[in-house]
Design a protein around this nucleic acid. Sequence first.
DNA 1: TTTTCCATGTAACTCGTTACATGATTTC
DNA 2: GAAATCATGTAACGAGTTACATGGAAAA
Lengths: 189, 189
Amino acid sequence: MERELLLLGLLRHEDMHGYRLVELIERDLSTCADVKKPTAYFLLAKLAKAGLIARSRSREGKRPPKWVYRLTAEGEAAFQRLLRQNLEAHLPAKFGGDIGLAFLEALGVEEAAEHLLRRRDAIAGALEGFRAAPEHAGSLGLVLAHQRLHLESELRWIDSVLTWLRGSGRAGISPKLPGIPHHTPNEAS
Amino acid sequence: MERELLLLGLLRHEDMHGYRLVELIERDLSTCADVKKPTAYFLLAKLAKAGLIARSRSREGKRPPKWVYRLTAEGEAAFQRLLRQNLEAHLPAKFGGDIGLAFLEALGVEEAAEHLLRRRDAIAGALEGFRAAPEHAGSLGLVLAHQRLHLESELRWIDSVLTWLRGSGRAGISPKLPGIPHHTPNEAS
DNA sequence: TTTTCCATGTAACTCGTTACATGATTTC
DNA sequence: GAAATCATGTAACGAGTTACATGGAAAA
């Protein structure tokens, strides 16, 4: 449902045609969504058939005519519903990188560390990209900030795995548990 | 490729039949992977055809016979390759929950906060579950620790969004950027 | 003039899921 | 005797992707 929410939300504050929509998502929202062109066109057709958006043909200059979509009243209602649903839910994230970690023991300490350092570099690189990016204002800035925060968390995580790994190399096969700094989350309510 | 790595890795340290494999994944690795039965059977057939695993029929007592899979030499090689590849790569995570955040402005401050608090509760609940769970040793404990760490990070994130929200409610429409505590990651190399 | 960009779409394919089918066996 | 569990599979479907097809317009 996230993709529908996304399309409705974008059309909500500006009428647009499909191509533009995809462009916008790829430029500004690539961190939290990727919607390829055929998917977008398909979803737009579906939403139109459901009556949540309406389309009208328009041409500018001598360019090929395009379908400009606008939100209908039903679309606005659906948007409101989907937004609330999205905000109040927590969709647990699965980290594919963890299944490699689950088999860390198959590698020697040295080699495991070597590969994890490469992963660390990749994360650090991605983080650099985010820090370099211009600061968007408002809720768009929010998603950027979240991604940045997450990457910082991942970096700390990898570091703690590395120290655990090295400790385990000295101590024997596998110690109790990674000694991870344990922040108590502050209450907010 | 993560699923293949998972199956090979599990078969590496114990010969097993499909049903058992799925059971094991659902019990111990549900946090970082989910593999349904038909998927598992399909993948096992594929891996067998590729020569990475070999199967042999066996029956215990009067139960229906089962296919017991074991890793071949090629399978071990593939495992080693996939493991390294997995460890050194960073696969960027997409948070579907962020697209709701991108449209936060569509809701009043009060209502947005209300819904986000529900999300917060969901995260806190999941976290509780992880803290209550028995501490697995070794690399299995790693993936649990990662998930716990991530949930803690998410909790802090939601809290900072909430404080930002409330600040924005007083100050006007939308301020510069969320004032997020900015930890400098410690170097590790 | 050839390439790139704008703009829309279709077709084939992959991956994964649900739902169903089968059959024996333990448990209630 | 009915229900749950063990064990394997097939069929139908859904969502999304890649690759392809089509054209005109602007840029190189």
